[in-house]
Design a binder for these strands. Structure first.
Lengths: 156, 156
DNA sequence: TATTGTTATACTCTATAACTATA
DNA sequence: TATAGTTATAGAGTATAACAATA
């Protein structure tokens, strides 16, 4: 009881991450709009890049969306000719999802545009600091949501 | 045209930050609940820590909230005896806001609880990497939202 | 009976506009 | 007339539940 712990040696992680993420989304929404994409549309294209996905539910989960919410997004992307979406012959309940050539091109152009602007922000960091930040962020972003949420348990 | 740029040398910043921030909020909501706080209630206490704030609008802006949304939050915090909220004698339109002793104690306890769990997540990083990550994040989080959003302009 | 996709509904969060009281 | 705070309303985003088709 004699000593008092220093309060707030650092700001809360969430208090820094959440506004930063919100600002980045506000930045990216109009940029994606110029490529004819919404935020979720772009997320779907990213989730489909390089790999065919067998069900819409799996895609939804992989991008952190609700399965009911991707439906309208997939409708739009299909109307725009950016994705293929066909019933799986082996299980006609499922829909095989993949990028069209045009979808791959649109995604690549949008991503280049996005990352160019993100790089302008990252330029505020020193070269080594930037590399360390990105490496650490990739590590943390790869931690499954469930494991993070589980840290809320009392005893942890 | 002979060479092709490598695609996606790194994941998008926003694509990593947004889910991570969402997971952290999912972690922290029940933790704060045990201290009798909501997320916005905690944000308000954090915004008031160490300093009196002269108007509710200023407080709202400083924590990235709408001025209409903090009202109910302030009502609850006042009912719970965590904040003082009195008309400014010099300008009775304004409300002087500050933490009560109890509010300061509740905030400190909640923050210690939050950061202990955040530290469990950060333990996935090496010691030097963790320090670099936090330092870089503080730098990026201090960039005003307007400057980030302005990166959307065509020519940037 | 279980699963995929879909639709419809309800709920939460957030933003907008209109009102009061002070200045 | 302008500003701080408040209230009420509308809108967007999200989650929940029920349904049809297929297995």
């Amino acid at each position: 009881m004699a000593t008092r712990k220093p309060v707030a040696s650092r700001p809360d992680l969430a208090a820094m991450l959440a506004p930063l993420a919100r600002s980045l989304m506000a930045l990216e929404t109009p940029v994606l709009g110029r490529h004819g994409l919404t935020m979720w549309g772009y997320a779907v294209l990213s989730g489909l890049r390089g790999q065919e996905v067998r069900t819409q539910s799996a895609l939804a989960e992989s991008i952190g969306a609700d399965k009911t919410r991707v439906i309208a997004v997939l409708d739009d992307l299909q109307d725009d000719g950016l994705i293929n979406r066909q019933p799986d012959p082996a299980d006609r309940r499922a829909r095989l999802l993949s990028l069209t050539d045009r979808g791959a091109r649109v995604h690549a152009a949008a991503q280049a545009d996005i990352q160019r602007r993100e790089n302008a922000l990252l330029a505020r960091l020193g070269r080594a600091e930037r590399a360390a930040f990105l490496s650490a962020l990739e590590t943390l972003a790869s931690v499954p949501r469930d494991e993070i949420v589980a840290l809320a348990e009392h005893g942890s």
